[in-house]
Simulated scan of single mutants.
Amino acid sequence: MRRLSALTWAAAAALVLGLTTAAPASASETDEFSDIEGDPYTGLVYEPAEGEAVSARGTNFSPAGCAGQTDYAHKSFNEASVHGRTTCTVAVGSLGVTTILQKQGWLYWESQLNDSSSRTNSKNSQDAHPHWYCGGWGSQNYRGVSTHWSQEASGRYSATTVGMEKRFSC
């Protein structure tokens, strides 16, 4: 039986320990929205001004009944797409939405493309709908993440929604 040298043992141990204790990528190397979870539909909540105590108002919902929604990701010809929108029950000074289309990677959700839509003196933002060419990737999981906002007489309101993931191939 052949004896292994100390150097061989050290190299083997470093390889095994290096593979089993490898840390995931740091937060700065991952996507800002890679680990976000949430509902596909939610009401917008008051966003405190800089320096304002959060407890001063609590978590007040938009008086104009504004809410955000992110739909299921879907296939559109040879592209992956998702739609997000902000709607209110009455017209507000301004409102908008930014929707990000994400594809599930090995370790985290990868943002592929984003789109924004905003309007003034309206009840809806219209849809933000990023489209990303996905041919040749095979079957993948996709989802949408949207940030919604409204500027009303009583302040700024915001929310984030996450559409349910959906698997499809282009």
Rank of each mutant, 00 (worst) to 15 (best):
P63T: 08
N114S: 14
V92K: 04
G51R: 07
T21I: 07
E79K: 13
A80M: 03
S146L: 00
Y41I: 13
S34T: 09
S122N: 15
K103I: 15
Y41D: 08
A159D: 04
N141D: 12
P63C: 06
D71K: 09
S94L: 05
A49I: 04
N124A: 10
L17Y: 05
A56E: 12
P24S: 11
A10I: 15
T161R: 02
A12D: 03
I100W: 06
M164A: 13
P130M: 03
A153H: 06
G163A: 03
G43Q: 14
V145C: 02
A13W: 12
V82T: 01
G144M: 04
Q102L: 03
W137A: 15
G105Y: 09
T20C: 09
A25F: 09
T30P: 01
R3S: 08
W109C: 03
W109A: 07
R119L: 08
V16P: 07
G144S: 06
V162C: 02
T161V: 00
G38W: 03
N141M: 12
P63L: 04
T20G: 03
T42Q: 11
V145K: 01
C170L: 07
T20F: 11
F61Q: 13
G43E: 10
S118V: 03
A80I: 01
H83F: 06
Y142P: 01
A128R: 00
D39G: 02
K75E: 14
I36N: 01
L15I: 14
Q126E: 09
T147P: 02
S117M: 04
F77P: 02
K103M: 15
S158G: 02
S28T: 10
W149S: 11
N114G: 07
S116V: 06
H83T: 12
W149L: 06
L113P: 00
C134S: 15
H129M: 11
A12I: 15
L19C: 06
A12Q: 07
V90I: 13
Y41T: 13
N141H: 14
F77G: 10
L95C: 02
Q112H: 03
P48L: 08
Y72E: 14
